[in-house]
Write a protein that binds this DNA or RNA. Structure first.
Length: 559
RNA sequence: GCGCCCAUAGCUCAAUUGGAUAGAGCGUCUGACUUCGGAUCAGAAGGUUAGGGGUUCGAUUCCUCUUGGGCGCACCA
């Protein structure tokens, strides 16, 4: 199936080719025609700025080119009912209403597959997100990253891209030892011993509970072991249990991963040494003061970075470079990472390393998932990592539920700060935007149910309905919003952000609610009209369902 | 001090990545149901896009300076 926008683009490309053959446009200049939906309805369904794009290379006034283009586009009345030149040289296109009607039919026949496309086939994306240290419960920013990453993955897959959802587990290094020592200390305390809790050790009740849980299984077998060994056991067990709990929590959020990649594997497999050898061969390594350095300043970083410390340990960056190299070796051609707000300074050095390893700068994309501020009772909720006072993903899910949590995370662009209003999120009866959309879906289902009970039959897919009935502004607006759904998904793939979909669903729901107040669907005095409107809202049901499902949010039939 | 990100309506945010008259929600004010779900809808008010300069047919978007915020600046991870 070919979507409306793609069909128009075909026409534009064909017209450009003809104009090139006729000498109106120079043939040596390649250019993708710009095609967009104008903000104002008076500017038509689509508009192209092609004439302005070509003005300079063709050395012609934009309106002259627009004139020639418009003449070509007159030949396709079955698709374009109106072609107008406006402003500095826009060509505004008005769709033949029958096209919109046919698209409603497409929506209904595709059903839950509507929006699915294959234009992204061949792209292999490794999408890494959350990747929180396995030293404590997942916090709010991790929850946000999980919702964004998971929804993005669903959208990318729907457009034919191959996606691996990956979680990088930092199970090596100092913080793991520290976790082990913290657990050990809490266990000793529980036995009545007086101990010095490690400086910078992990606070919070979960450490005590975790220690008790581990000890319950092992206690008798390690009485005779030395302190370091016991700490190590605590560390291993603790990490395993925490990873398992992350896995459960993320699953509760509907954000499952395809792969959990362990940092430790890189240390064991020798990939760190191997990747450094690569960097060395290309002349980007040097030794200074006993440490091994990466000359990242040659590639846009603002200072060189240590990869192997003077004490022989790998720096974190070394493992991370090896990790990203590993992604490339697995055949992924696009590496997309969602990182926390405090890691933005890290992008330049990793990009530098990847460039050395042959990864095009554009193939490595990082979105910073910005900070989340929780609000309650008109005031920010005070959180302190030090004292272990954190609102966790688990707390949030218990508090507001999966659907609301996900939608609130998804309705802002990734790299802008998010104010999460807990009071609004908890409200089930007022202006909660999640329910606004779900309500539209439930309302449609309710009408469809009533229609069959009252003897109105929903037209079968493929069965002709009186197309002209979709003619009131509220009807056409709704139909237009629905037909734009594939383009919204395209935008999300392009920007690698899911929030446009959340906005689009809100717009679709609004268009439906407006339609509903103006247009009576079930009217026994006008059966053809009722049938046409039933088909329209059925299409709306499909799009709302599909959109919500790409966001990982349920589409209830009743609320 | 250096670097990165940000600044749009009273508040929270969009703006199809350079397009036409900058749009939504909340809040405020005024309205709308005898019938399909009022968790709804309509209307009004609200803007020099922080400020100056530049690039071009065209700038919220790109460059530059100023101001004001956030975050980084470890041989931590």
């Amino acid at each position: 199936m070919m979507y409306i926008k793609a069909r128009i683009l075909n026409l534009l490309n064909r017209a450009v080719k003809e104009l090139q053959q006729e000498g109106v446009l120079p043939s040596e200049v390649p250019m993708e025609p710009g095609l967009e939906r104008p903000a104002a309805a008076m500017h038509g369904d689509y508009a192209t700025n092609l004439a302005m794009q070509w003005a300079k290379p063709a050395r012609k006034a934009p309106r002259v080119i627009a004139q020639a283009l418009a003449a070509k586009l007159q030949d396709y009345p079955e698709l374009l009912a109106g072609v107008e030149i406006a402003g500095p040289g826009f060509v505004n296109l008005r769709l033949n209403p029958a096209v919109l009607q046919a698209e409603l039919e497409n929506i209904r026949s595709a059903g839950f597959a509507y929006g699915v496309s294959d234009w992204g086939v061949g792209r292999k994306v490794l999408l890494e997100y959350v990747s929180a240290n396995p030293t404590g419960p997942l916090n709010i920013v991790s929850a946000r990253a999980a919702a964004i990453g998971d929804s993005l993955a669903r959208i990318l897959k729907s457009q034919g891209l191959e996606v691996c959802r990956e979680y990088y587990v930092n199970n090596a290094g100092r913080q793991i030892q520290l976790l082990g020592r913290s657990l050990y200390a809490r266990w000793q305390e529980s036995r009545g011993e007086v101990v010095d809790f490690p400086e910078d050790g992990y606070q919070g009740e979960y450490v005590k509970e975790l220690a008790a849980g581990i000890a319950a299984e092992r206690e008798n077998s390690w009485e005779q072991l030395d302190k370091d060994t016991v700490s190590k056991v605590f560390a291993e067990q603790g990490v395993n249990r925490i990873i398992a709990s992350h896995c459960r929590d993320l699953s509760d959020l509907g954000a499952d991963f395809d792969n959990w990649f362990h940092e430790l594997d890189l240390h064991v497999s020798g990939e760190i040494e191997a990747v450094l050898e690569e960097l060395k061969t290309r002349g980007y390594l040097y030794e200074k003061e006993g440490a091994l350095w990466f000359r990242s300043t040659d590639l846009g970083d603002d200072k060189d970075r240590v990869l192997r410390k003077a004490n022989g340990d790998w720096a974190y960056l070394a493992a991370d470079i090896a990790y990203h190299w590993n992604k490339l070796k697995r055949g992924y051609t696009e590496l997309v990472d969602l990182w926390g707000p405090d890691h933005h300074g890290y992008i330049a050095r990793l990009r530098a390393a990847l460039q050395v390893l042959g990864c095009a700068p554009k193939a490595f994309k990082v979105h910073i998932v910005q900070q989340v501020n929780l609000w309650e009772g008109g005031k920010p909720v005070a959180m302190s990592k030090r004292a272990g006072r954190l609102v966790t993903l688990t707390d949030l899910l218990q508090d507001v539920g999966k659907d609301v949590a996900r939608f609130f995370f998804l309705m802002r662009s990734t790299d802008s700060h998010l104010d999460f209003d807990l009071d609004l999120a908890r409200r089930h009866t007022e202006d909660n935007p999640v329910f606004y959309i779900q309500y539209a879906h439930a309302r449609i289902c309710s009408i469809l149910k009533k229609s069959s009970a009252d003897g109105f039959d929903l037209p079968a897919v493929g069965e002709p309905v009186k197309a002209v009935e979709v003619s009131l502004p509220e009807e056409t607006t709704l139909a237009r919003e629905l037909a734009a759904f594939p383009e919204v998904l395209e935008t999300c793939v392009h920007t690698l952000e899911p929030h446009s979909l959340a906005f689009a669903l809100r717009d679709i729901a609004a268009a439906f609610h407006r339609f509903y107040t103006v247009c009576r669907v079930l009217n026994s005095a006008d059966i053809p009209c009722s049938r046409a409107r039933l088909a329209l809202i059925d299409a709306a049901r499909v799009v709302l369902h599909n959109g919500l499902s790409l966001l990982g949010i349920s589409a209830p039939e009743s609320m």
